[in-house]
Amino acid sequence: MKKHTRLLAAVLAVITLLGLFATTFSQPAKAAETTKISTIKKRGTIKIAVFGDLPPYGWVDKNGKRQGYDIALAKQVGKDLGVKVKYVQVNADSRVDALNSDKVDLVLANFTVTPERKQVISFAKPYMKVSIGVISPKSKPITKVSQLSGKNLIVNKGTTAEQYFTKNSKGATLQKYDSKTQQFNALKNGRAAALADDNSYLYAWVKNNPKYTVGIKHLGPNQYIAPGVKKGNKSLLKWTNKEITKLNNNGFFDKNYKQNLKPYFGSDVTAKDIVIK
């Protein structure tokens, strides 16, 4: 019995300790000095969070060099600031924390603007747009949503495409699959008339499967990809906004598209479908 009381006491103590930690952490972070442009210039390096496993946006080639659409932008940012770029490879779910704990100054990692994220970090001007697309066999192309009525449509669980068609099915019957591999196999086996997913993902798939076409390129609201900076870092946010505007005007993104995305997307797509003007 005595042993049990001691054990209980120990457990309670640990819980209290954790509780103390938790309350310490939930206090608003001190107004830590934000990394201003001048700080970055003095330091001589800008720390940029990128993906290492998402071709063609941020990936690593066989020689260990970072490549991709986001990487090209990161390089340009470093060049225009006159500083070296230090890449910090992140996962999708650590992008916000990397910014907030000052592990990075800027996030260029296929960062989709969402209202939830906007509450904890700041987004600069977007540099890319994606939306839902629909692919179908070239022999029986589906080019309008109305054509889906009474037909089967494949979606991947957990994607924006699934959300969109669950809300407004347009008369189509949904077939939901767990993985990308399954959904594409189902389409190849003729289980449905079409398949809906993120359009940038579909462009790449169609490139390797020329019997299919992205009949509907844009559906539903556009989603924007933008650079992320720490909330309150006005200096860097302002600079990044100017930089995106400048790069938009001098055709940098068109060039970047041709270099990094076009080889993946094929000729079905043009820069206009992705790049923001």
Binding site: G52, P55, W59, V60, K62, Q89, A98
Partner: peptide, 21 residues
């Protein structure tokens, strides 16, 4: 790999994804 250390698994994933297509 969760805290951005370039360990063997992280590099393995880079290689897998670079060649996924």
């Amino acid at each position: 790999l969760l805290i951005s250390v370039m360990d063997v698994v992280n590099i393995g994933q880079q290689i897998i994804e670079a060649n996924r297509q």
